[in-house]
Write a protein that binds this DNA or RNA. Structure first.
Lengths: 341, 341
DNA sequence: GGACTTTCTGACAACGTTGTCACCACCTGC
DNA sequence: GCAGGTGGTGACAACGTTGTCAGAAAGTCC
C-alpha cells in the first residue's frame, strides 16, 4: 500500500469538475436547482476523487451533531450491552447516532468521559453514574439534557430511568421468607453504586418483616463482581450455620454465586438474582430472577432524551425532570422456590 | 429547567475576561507564556461561563480526530461486547477514542456505518464484515487503514485478525470422532457470515477423515441464532437416528443448543461450542469449547491499527496487509468428552 | 422593447478553533 | 545610548462546510 493521501475536499472536487464549491455542495446534499448536466459531471468527479464529506466541518457550521452520548460502567457487562443496544436502535430510528464511553466504575474516568462527550457536542447524555461527587455535572446542565439510568445520583433534579431497587428487592426476599428461609445471604454488596445500598435496604426491610436481624457476615462489602461473589458464597457455605438462600444484588454476582453453589454441589440452596443473565433458564434448577429489563430502560431513556430535544427544538420550555420507574417483575423459575432443608 | 442556552465560545470567554481569544486558547491548552495574573483571570471566566471546547472546531483545524471506528454485528453479542471492550481499553492507552456502529448483519447497514465513520474522519476502521459485496471499501482504502476482525472478506488485501476457523473446527470435531461419535450435528449454520462456511468445511474434513458422509439434515441452513439452534436441536433429537454429539458453530447457537439438550433431558449428548459463553463452566456437564478469545482478537486488531497509524505518522511506507491468526485452544470441560450411548 | 419572473450558478461570510507572525514592553550587556 | 534578546499578547488566516445574497442567462408577458 502507498502512503495515505490527503482527503479531497469540496475545493478539489470543484476544480476537478470546473464548478464552484457551492455547486458541489448542492450536488452532495441533493439540493434541487442544479442542471442535470452539471449534476452528472460533478457526481463523476466525486466518484473519481473518492470524495467523502467532512462531518466535522458540517457539524461546526450547523452548530452541533446528531449524537447522543452514553456513559456506563463497561460495555462488556451484558446488562449495559443490551441497554446500549436498545438505545442505539431507538436513536437510529430518530435519525441520531450514539457514542459511548466506559467508566470502569471509576468516578474520575466518568468525569473524563462526560467531559469528552461535552466537547464532542453531544445533543444529550445518558449516564449510569458511579458513586461519587456529581457536582461537576452542574456545568453541563444548562446546555445538555442529562438522563440517568439504572442509578440515582446524590444531587436531585435529574431525569432518572430505573427500577424500584428497594421495593423489588423487598419483594424478592419476601419470596424467600415466605418459603421459610431465615438465613439469607446478600452477595454483590458493591460499594461503588448507590443502587446496591437501596437493594440492601430492601433486603433489610424483608428480613425485619419476619423479625430477623441479619448477621453482618451475610452481606460482606466488596467489589460486587463475579469472582468475589464466588468466594463469598463458598465461604458462607462452609460456615457453621450456612445460609439456606442467596440473594444476588446484580447479575455478575449472581453468576459467581450460582457457580459456587454448583461447584459445592449445593443446588438445594435457594437463589434469586437481581437481573437476568444468560443461561439462567438452562441451569438446574433454573434461576429465579428479578427481570431488570435493560432493553426497557434503554428505550425509556432514549424516549426521554428525544422528548427533551423536541422541547428544545420547538422552543418549548424544557421538560421537568422525571423519575421513570420501569415496570419489572419477579420471574419464578425454580431456584427461588426451593424450601430450606 | 430553563431553555437550553447557546454554548459559550472562546470569543465569549475572551470578552468576559478582557483578553484576546488567542490568550484564552492558550490557557485552555495549558500553553506556557501566559502571565499568572491573566491565567487566573481567564480561568475564572472559563469556570463562570461553563466554557467547554468544541472538538468539531479543533478536529477541523487539526485535520482529523483521534478516533478509531469499530463496526460489527451487534454490541449485545457477548463476543463483540468483549472484543469492543478490549479495543476501547487498548485505544484509551494510546490516547485515542473509539466509536462503534452495529450492522445487524445487514450488508446495506454495514455500508452506511462505514460511510458514517468515514465522514467522522476516523483514523482507522476495525470491521467485522457481513457477507456481501465489499467493493465499496475500495473508495476508503487509500485514506483509511482497515482491519478486518473475525471474518475474511471476499476481496483480499486487507489486514485480518481472526482464528483458524476451519482448522479449529476440524480439531473440535476430531475430538468428538475420537470418542466414537459418528452422527454429529452442526448447528448455527448461518448464511450471513463467511466464517460459518469455513467452519462447515472443517466439520466436513473431520467427518471425511472417519469416512462419514454427513446427512444434510445435520447442518440445516438458517439464521444461526439462539432460538433457531434450539429448534434445530429439538427437532434432531426427535429424529429416528438422533445425533450423539452436537457442534455449535457460534456461542449464540451453542446457548440455544445447550438449552434444548437440557429441556429434552438429553445432557448425555456430547456438545462442543465454537466460542465460549457465560455460565458454560457452571452447567452440568460443563461445556467444552473452542475459546475464541475476543479479548485477544480485539487487542491484536488495535495493535495492528496503531502500527498503521505509526507508519503513517512517521512517513514510512504503509504496512503490508497481514493475516493474523490468534492462537486459541480447545477447552475440555466435560460435555465434549462424553461418549456415545 | 422593456419589465418581470425563473432557473441556475458563484462569491463571500461565518461556524470555533489553532498556527503563524508581528508587536510591544521590558530587560541585558556593551 | 543602542543592539539584541525575551516574555507576554493580539491580529489574522486557515481548516471544510453551508447559508445568504447577488448576478447571469433565458424565458414570459404586455
Amino acid at each position: 500500500m502507498a502512503r495515505m493521501a490527503r482527503r479531497p475536499t469540496l475545493h478539489d472536487v470543484a476544480s476537478h469538475a470546473g464548478v464552484s464549491i457551492k455547486t458541489v455542495s448542492r450536488v452532495v446534499n441533493h439540493e434541487a436547482s442544479v442542471s442535470e448536466e452539471v449534476r452528472t459531471r460533478v457526481a463523476a468527479s466525486i466518484a473519481e476523487l473518492h470524495y467523502v464529506p467532512n462531518s466535522f466541518a458540517r457539524s461546526l457550521k450547523s452548530g452541533g451533531g446528531d449524537t447522543i452520548g452514553v456513559v456506563m460502567d463497561s460495555i462488556a457487562d451484558p446488562f449495559f450491552a443490551e441497554l446500549m443496544s436498545a438505545v442505539e436502535a431507538r436513536a437510529l430510528d430518530a435519525g441520531m447516532t450514539v457514542i459511548f464511553g466506559s467508566t470502569g466504575s471509576d468516578p474520575e474516568r466518568e468525569r473524563q468521559q462526560v467531559e469528552r462527550m461535552a466537547m464532542q457536542r453531544v445533543r444529550a447524555l445518558i449516564l449510569a453514574p458511579v458513586t461519587g461527587d456529581h457536582s461537576y455535572l452542574e456545568r453541563f446542565r444548562a446546555t445538555l439534557p442529562i438522563v440517568m439510568v439504572d442509578r440515582q445520583v446524590e444531587i436531585g433534579g435529574y431525569d432518572i430511568v430505573a427500577v424500584d431497587d428497594r421495593g423489588l428487592t423487598r419483594q424478592a426476599v419476601d419470596h424467600l421468607t415466605e418459603r421459610g428461609h431465615r438465613r439469607i445471604a446478600f452477595v454483590g454488596n458493591d460499594v461503588h453504586f448507590p443502587t446496591t445500598a437501596h437493594r440492601l435496604l430492601g433486603y433489610r426491610d424483608a428480613l425485619a418483616a419476619v423479625d430477623v436481624e441479619p448477621d453482618p457476615s451475610w452481606f460482606p462489602e466488596g467489589s460486587g463482581d463475579e469472582d468475589e461473589a464466588f468466594d463469598v458464597v463458598t465461604r458462607l457455605l462452609a460456615a457453621p450455620e450456612p445460609p439456606t438462600a442467596v440473594f444476588a444484588a446484580n447479575p455478575r454476582a449472581a453468576m459467581g454465586a450460582v457457580h459456587a453453589l454448583h461447584v459445592a454441589g449445593r443446588t438445594d440452596v435457594a437463589m434469586i438474582s437481581f437481573g437476568d443473565f444468560p443461561m439462567a433458564t438452562t441451569l438446574t434448577p433454573a434461576i429465579t430472577c428479578v427481570n431488570q429489563d435493560p432493553h426497557g430502560i434503554g428505550v425509556a431513556a432514549t424516549e426521554r432524551v428525544i422528548a427533551h430535544l423536541d422541547a428544545r427544538e420547538h422552543d418549548r420550555p424544557d421538560e421537568h425532570p422525571l423519575e421513570i420507574i420501569v415496570d419489572t417483575e419477579l420471574v419464578a423459575r425454580g431456584s427461588g422456590e426451593l424450601e430450606p432443608a
